[in-house]
């Protein structure tokens, strides 16, 4: 019987159970085995890049599990934006259609980690810093490395770190926005969705509310659990 949903992505590993209340644990992907200690494979529904590697009874891609996971919180989502560590997936639930950016890291969690590392910050601090910005500057480069070069030149010109972090969030959100089709109910999931700076920037660009479920980083693990339960029936 499926009792656990496990999502091992490029950066983090998540395990979710509903017994009956939601419980979850998160660790770095390279330590995924620690999450599964004592759990038999036939109780696991897996997703994420490692879905076929980890012990499991049922596996599904993140595109499918995102739909199941989001529906735990929101009826009839139209578009799901899943910002992962190394790619961003935009799924149009209405049309069973999806696109993934994988040629460039500029719209992924890796880009924000790269920027945070440069400034000696934690990724989790970026949101707080965003709120202290006075204004934003255009970041024109779409390549992460060149974008950082551009940020450095603005730093040399005297702009504050706060303004630059907010500007990076703006550039990040613009890149994601290009992938999102017109819809009324857009949901943002993935660890990066915890960064309010990204959500606010996206809402400003799209001029609409962006829904973010609680614990957005575990939605795919939760969706894997629900998908596994359904397939078992």
């Amino acid at each position: 019987m499926i009792r656990y949903g496990v999502d091992v992505g490029s950066t983090t590993a998540k395990i979710v159970s509903l017994t009956p209340e939601l419980t979850y644990r998160v660790t770095e992907s390279r330590n995924w085995e620690t999450l599964l200690e004592g759990i038999p494979a036939n109780e696991i529904a897996s997703t994420g890049y490692f879905r076929h590697k980890i012990p499991h009874k049922i596996a599904a891609t993140e595109i499918t599990t995102a739909i199941y996971g989001v529906k735990e919180y929101l009826n009839d989502p139209e578009v799901i934006v899943d910002i992962g560590g190394q790619d961003t997936k935009v799924t149009d639930v209405r049309r069973n259609n999806f696109i993934v950016n994988d040629k460039c890291s500029a719209g992924t969690g890796a880009f924000l980690e790269f920027i945070a590392h440069y400034f000696g910050l934690k990724v989790t601090d970026l949101s707080k810093i965003h709120h202290k910005a006075a204004h934003t500057i255009n970041i024109n480069h779409t390549c992460s490395v060149f974008a950082l070069s551009e940020v450095v030149s603005h730093l040399v010109d005297g702009h504050t770190i706060e303004d630059l972090i907010a500007s990076i969030h703006q550039a990040f959100a613009e890149r994601i926005a290009q992938m999102i089709p017109e819809a009324e109910k857009i949901v943002l999931i993935g660890g990066t969705a915890q960064n309010r700076g990204i959500t606010i920037s996206l809402e400003e660009i799209l001029k609409q509310e962006i829904h973010t479920p609680p614990n957005p980083q575990i939605i795919n693990a939760l969706g894997a659990l629900r998908y596994g339960e359904e397939k078992e029936e």
Partner: peptide, 26 residues
């Protein structure tokens, strides 16, 4: 959207697998 030749890369396998899953949903 491919670039260099070789076997199907893992990223692309993910997309094909997801596409197949979504087709079963319709």
């Amino acid at each position: 959207h491919s670039d260099l030749p070789g076997p199907v890369p893992e990223q692309l396998k993910l997309r094909i697998e997801a596409f197949s899953e979504l087709l079963w949903r319709k």
